[in-house]
């Protein structure tokens, strides 16, 4: 990788101030999205601001109606502590591999908005809220496209609040080599209705309204048996054509409903 200036921030305010001074800075938490990109020399930030040790960003808090995960909380910690939402715990255990889960963080993952990442499905599937140093952003508004989010320059994810669902599950069909999601579907039933969020299949996480409506009427796998997403616009690569991904969305959604029900 190219060389850069390294700063370790002690607090959110310090991190934001350091970022403001950097000409092309990036926040570094676990580094498991950023460092691989930098190693390939595909990114050349001037400054890395290490937020990994800011206590306020670390940890899983269980509130009466929600689970709040600090931005710099590693996946392994979510897997161990997000007991109030078992589907979220289980999703965290499917990210990367054990070593990656010890370092990779939720904030780093969602700020990167990789189209095949697992967390976006949980955020959108559960209707989570992203808290930044400036504002709160609904998950539905957070993911804007391929590696694109609603975050503005210098804005930092502080935590993610996941409302507790009545029932939820995540089903993932991994891309065999990278183990990212070829297709991952998060299904949640809440008091307000049903949410179905799909990752891996498209340029960014998306919801399947037709499935949500059908599942609201009847929360069974059979209720969505005939509901498919159009292949047009879905990702297509050597690991899966758009047509195959469209098919998998239905299979994974049904399996998620079966697991959640």
């Amino acid at each position: 990788m190219y060389n850069f200036n390294y700063h370790r921030a002690g607090s959110v305010d310090e991190a934001v101030a350091l970022m403001a001074k950097a000409s092309d800075g990036r926040f570094l938490a676990g580094g498991h999205s950023l460092l691989p990109t930098m190693k390939q020399r595909l990114a050349q930030p001037t400054d890395l601001i290490d937020i990994g040790r800011i206590a306020a960003l670390n940890g899983v808090k269980t509130e009466s109606n929600a689970v709040v995960v600090g931005a710099a909380t590693p996946h392994a910690e979510v897997n161990a502590s997000a007991k109030a939402i078992p589907a979220l715990m289980a999703l965290a255990a499917k990210i990367g591999d054990p070593h990656v889960r010890h370092r990779g963080t939720i904030g780093g993952s969602i700020a990167n908005s990789d189209p095949a990442a697992d967390y976006p499905a949980a955020l959108v599937g559960l209707g989570a809220t992203v808290k930044t140093n400036k504002r709160t952003i609904a998950a539905d508004d957070f993911f804007k496209g391929l590696f694109e989010t609603a975050l503005s320059d210098g804005e930092m994810v502080v935590s993610v609040s996941f409302p507790k669902p009545e029932a939820a599950a995540y089903m993932k069909f991994p891309q065999p080599a990278s183990r990212f999601a070829l297709v991952g579907v998060f299904v949640a039933r809440t008091s307000g209705g049903v949410r179905v969020a799909v990752t891996g299949a498209g340029p960014s996480v998306f919801r399947v309204k037709a499935m949500e409506d059908a599942l609201k009427a009847k929360f069974t796998p059979d209720a969505i048996k005939g509901i498919t997403v159009p292949a047009k616009g879905l990702n297509s690569d050597i690991h899966g054509s758009a047509e195959y991904r469209a098919h998998l969305v239905n299979v994974m959604a049904r399996r998620a409903v079966a697991a959640a029900a």
Binding site: Y6, L28, G31, H32, L35, P36, K39, L48, A76, D97, P98, H99, V100, H102, R103, S178
Partner: peptide
């Protein structure tokens, strides 16, 4: 690409990929 695991060490008792850690 942080996948083979030949570089795994423990930091504070937990396994991590030392090729993906500064």
């Amino acid at each position: 690409t942080s996948q083979c695991g030949a570089c795994v060490v423990h930091i504070n008792g937990k396994a991590v990929k030392s090729c993906t850690t500064l």
